[in-house]
Design a protein around this nucleic acid. Sequence first.
DNA 1: ACACAACCTGACCAACCGGTCAACTAGAAT
DNA 2: ATTCTAGTTGACCGGTTGGTCAGGTTGTGT
Lengths: 212, 212
Amino acid sequence: MAEPTRPMRRQDIRRENEKTILVAAEKVFAEAGFGGATMQLIADLAGLPKANLHYYFATKEELYRSVVQNIFEIWLQAANCFDAARGPIDGISAYIDAKMEISRRHPDGSKVWASEVMHGAPVLQDYMESTLREWTDGRVEIIRRWIEEGKMDPVDPRHLLYMLWAATQHYADFGHQIETLNGGKPLSDRQWREAKDNIKRVILTGIGARPA
Amino acid sequence: MAEPTRPMRRQDIRRENEKTILVAAEKVFAEAGFGGATMQLIADLAGLPKANLHYYFATKEELYRSVVQNIFEIWLQAANCFDAARGPIDGISAYIDAKMEISRRHPDGSKVWASEVMHGAPVLQDYMESTLREWTDGRVEIIRRWIEEGKMDPVDPRHLLYMLWAATQHYADFGHQIETLNGGKPLSDRQWREAKDNIKRVILTGIGARPA
DNA sequence: ACACAACCTGACCAACCGGTCAACTAGAAT
DNA sequence: ATTCTAGTTGACCGGTTGGTCAGGTTGTGT
């Protein structure tokens, strides 16, 4: 019954262990916060001795930094939906879909991200002042153009973006509250769809989005 | 120049010290999370010796619990706006105003609350299953009635509430991000008003709210 | 077969944290 | 004035934490 453990190549070992550690770390950081997380807890969850963690990640901060950067990249990827779109209905719908999918598939990463920002973004400050700002400015420009072209009402683009972030991220960060109010059960497929549709409908109607 | 320190009555001492400690604790818990906060940090910020903290609050958990319960009560007070209203425009407007005011005046408390929920509400689980659930069910019923009376479109009441919570709380929890994207400066009075107006306008339009 | 480098890990350590306590000071009641 | 109780605090303690390290094991190029 024992799997015939094929010999692993060096590269595979490193990649696999780093992945295992990062997954465990993401979960522990999400559940306990940076201060509450311990290397021992992460090691136990990863099924590795603590000293092994320090072989791959020198310090707790370095491990945390890797986790945060990972989720930040996923977060940014959802951005592309916006660019390809021809109008607010396509663009914002796709963006809501993408961000809701992140909230559903990576709730731990979302929480780590939220926690990082809430504590003043000590690790990500640089990214926020460069990458995030550029991305935001670009999207603001797109929305402004949509408004000029009469494709939607004149809504402040920044506050609209904040609302999109807030409404979608809420389902990850406050998932526990939502679950509690849902009778202690996680949202079903159907409920996730309803959530998505509701956000889309309220916001798209709210900004007076008109077909391109 | 030294203030003529009037003798303090026992009651005043206790009340004043508890208040000082709670304020300091709220800030430290918000900035560092429960795990990252230390009694020493809180004591330093409060200007009291650490042992004195333990005189008023036996354990770190007890102090944390007090902080969380405080903000929970503020949070619940904003609820009353909803009841007095005759229709969605009045009710939801007032609620958004109240919650935005909380985000602005009590950003630390909001963060502690968010952190608490994000980590599975270890302290507040009881409240969430009783008080919060009751409050939510009551509000759902009100919204449902508004829909029946044709005062707004048939939007899922729960998801609408989540959106209200998310959009308003975001300005506290992600305040640092918003500040960074605002050129590193806090939102001005005018920008806060714009934020509030935008949320109101998008949501009220989005749900097709009609005057009672 | 050999040597080198990457990988692994039990044992250990200094620093720190939550919490305790005994001794002290200062209002309040008589 | 005396007594009692609430409030104050420096010093201390056991347990935990992030991090180290010496010595072992295993894949890999020659």
